[in-house]
Simulated scan of single mutants.
Amino acid sequence: MIGSRGVGSNYGGIERVLDELCPRLGRLGHQVDVYGDPGAVFEDHGGVRAIGASSFGGKHFETLSRSLNALARAMGRYDVIHLHAVGPGILSAATHLFGQRSLVTIHGLDQKRDKWSATARACLTLAERALVANADQITVVSEPLRRYFIERYDVAASLIPNGMPRKTPAAPGAFLASFGLEPGGYVLFASRLTPEKGCHDLIAAFDALPQGTRLVVAGSSGEPDYLAALRAAADPAKVVFVGHRSGHELAELFSNAKLFVLPSYVEGMSMALLEALAYKVPALVTDIPENRVVVREHGFYVQPRDPAGLADALARLLESPDALGAARAALDSLDRPDWDAVAQRYDRLYRTPPRRPFAVAPPQQVGAR
């Protein structure tokens, strides 16, 4: 596995995917080596090893430089090199050149994220075209992503969605008390603090609401200026920043939230959203295809980049306990594959010979049809 900060880091969505997936692959008989940040700690769970790979160059080159380092050490040693995300997917050009079988999983269209400059987006678009031309297999985590690759490149990627985790609710305890939080007395945002997640819109919406229910912001940011701007815009009487949380502390936050809000502009398939639904927390999300395929009719929607509309929706829901209760009860009928089923689908894919070459149509021809 190449392209993440590694198992045990719990940094973002891809890392949480690997934390769920890799031990299950180990139990299915695979030896899984995950190259990532040397500081990530992960115990061997039945055939999973965390291998440190150094990086350099800040946010624009950190993941790619770590992936290059990992690939140099991994080439020729494995039955399959599994690359994660668009940027690292460009390395499939090297695996193809040297006859190393590769699989690339697309977790989202990274070039659409606001944090990247025009140059970075152009590079990510180049990486996308390279992986389409060179990867032996491509998987995507959502139906909108599958359609994107068909319509843009005439490539039939395999759809393997992220699994619904199994969660046991946690009673309110010392962690909530340390922030003065009451069960059912707060709205939760839990995600990486990057512009495309829309946390600034949520803070602006909360500033327009009267005092009452609080907003809890859980997550870390690799962009200090953005985090500083969020803190400067937030009313400390309404908004509580709790930083990056995991384990029992995160379970407490999810289990006792009144509502989960994800005002993102771009997604692949949000692990935080899946986790909220697993805890039976009603969700208010932006009406983008990647969120709709997860929540379907079991939640509430707002338009992206609309703080005023978000404030209106929050005001209505926070004053409608019956609507929230009905949404919570409806989540019992939400049927999604769990991680055991997801691992079994990857197991079958690894054991299936790749079907190359892909039928690739140039982007301009596909767009013209």
Rank of each mutant, 00 (worst) to 15 (best):
D136R: 06
R129V: 00
S117P: 01
V132K: 08
W116A: 03
R121P: 02
R129F: 04
A130T: 13
D136A: 12
K115E: 14
V140C: 06
L126P: 00
A120D: 12
L126F: 15
A135G: 11
A135D: 08
A133S: 13
S117C: 00
D110G: 01
C123A: 14
A122P: 02
I138R: 07
S117Y: 06
S142M: 08
K115T: 09
D114W: 02
R121A: 11
T119L: 14
Q111T: 07
V140R: 09
G108Q: 11
A118F: 03
L126N: 02
K115L: 13
A122D: 02
W116Q: 02
V141S: 05
A130E: 09
K112W: 11
I138T: 09
S142V: 06
I106R: 04
N134V: 06
S142P: 05
E128K: 09
Q137L: 12
Q137S: 14
C123K: 13
R113P: 00
V132P: 03
E128M: 09
R129C: 00
G108A: 15
T125Y: 12
A122H: 10
E128T: 11
S117W: 06
N134K: 10
D110P: 02
R121W: 02
Q111M: 14
A118P: 02
L126S: 09
R113E: 06
A133K: 15
V140S: 03
D110R: 04
D110S: 10
A133M: 13
A133W: 12
L109V: 08
Q137H: 13
L126R: 14
R113S: 04
I106P: 04
L131I: 09
A133Q: 15
A118H: 05
L131T: 09
T119Y: 01
Q111I: 05
T119D: 00
R121T: 00
D136T: 09
V140M: 07
V140Y: 09
D110I: 04
K112A: 11
L109H: 06
D110Q: 05
A127L: 06
W116C: 02
D136C: 10
A120W: 03
V141K: 05
N134R: 12
R129S: 11
A127H: 04
N134I: 06
V141Y: 00
A118V: 13
T139E: 07
R129Y: 06
R121S: 10
A120I: 01
G108R: 04
T125W: 14
T119P: 01
A130F: 10
T125E: 12
T119W: 00
V141P: 05
A130G: 06
Q137E: 15
Q137T: 14
G108K: 03
K112D: 09
K115V: 10
L109K: 10
Q111W: 14
R129A: 12
R113H: 01
S142R: 06
Q137D: 15
Q111S: 14
T125S: 12
G108F: 07
L109T: 03
C123M: 13
L124I: 08
L124N: 05
A133N: 12
A118M: 08
S117T: 15
I106D: 04
A118L: 13
A130Q: 13
L131D: 05
T125P: 01
K112Q: 12
Q111D: 07
K115H: 00
S142K: 07
V132N: 07
V132Y: 05
A127C: 14
H107Y: 10
Q137Y: 08
